[in-house]
């Protein structure tokens, strides 16, 4: 039987913590949609637990965290821990966008972030990275 699989890349665009700037997240959400992804946008001011809940329940391939507040070193590890608790860390591609100082990058990647895209990254680059690196769900 040729059961045709209908796979779409699912992505959660997350704003976490006390950071009220979501212009970038909106632009990314739209670009992902136009790339054919199914995008779930978290809304502003989410706690790490809310992001974890959404990522686990929605079974997203990609978790994109947008942080402009400088709190990435505390918020990102909390999200990673939460994902691990629900066995959702291994097969979720975690990318971070926003203002991340050069000296923090290695630390975040050690924590489990797969890629960091700073301001000015061409949208195609991010989309291409996702297409090449998502874990198969089937």
């Amino acid at each position: 039987m040729s059961q045709e699989s209908q796979r779409n890349i699912r992505c959660l665009v997350a704003k976490v913590g006390l950071d009220g700037h979501d212009r970038g997240a909106h632009v990314i959400t739209r670009a992902f949609r136009d790339a054919g992804f199914e995008v779930i946008y978290s809304g502003l001011h989410k706690a790490p637990e809310e992001i974890v809940q959404a990522a686990v329940q929605e079974d997203v391939d990609v978790l994109g965290i947008s942080i402009l507040s400088g709190a990435h070193n505390t918020l990102v590890p909390k999200i990673v821990e939460g994902l691990q608790e629900y066995d959702a860390f291994e097969d979720t591609l975690i990318i971070v966008g926003g203002i991340i100082p050069e000296e923090d990058r290695d630390g975040l990647e050690e924590d489990g972030v797969d890629a960091i895209f700073g301001p000015g990254t061409p949208m195609e680059e991010t989309i291409e990275f996702i297409r090449e690196n998502v874990q198969p769900r089937d």
Binding site: R30, D34, G36, I40, Y41, S42
Partner: peptide, 13 residues
């Protein structure tokens, strides 16, 4: 979208 298959799923918010 019938063209790209993409979607913004906004109910969760």
């Amino acid at each position: 979208s019938p063209f790209t298959g993409g979607a913004v799923l906004g109910d969760r918010i």
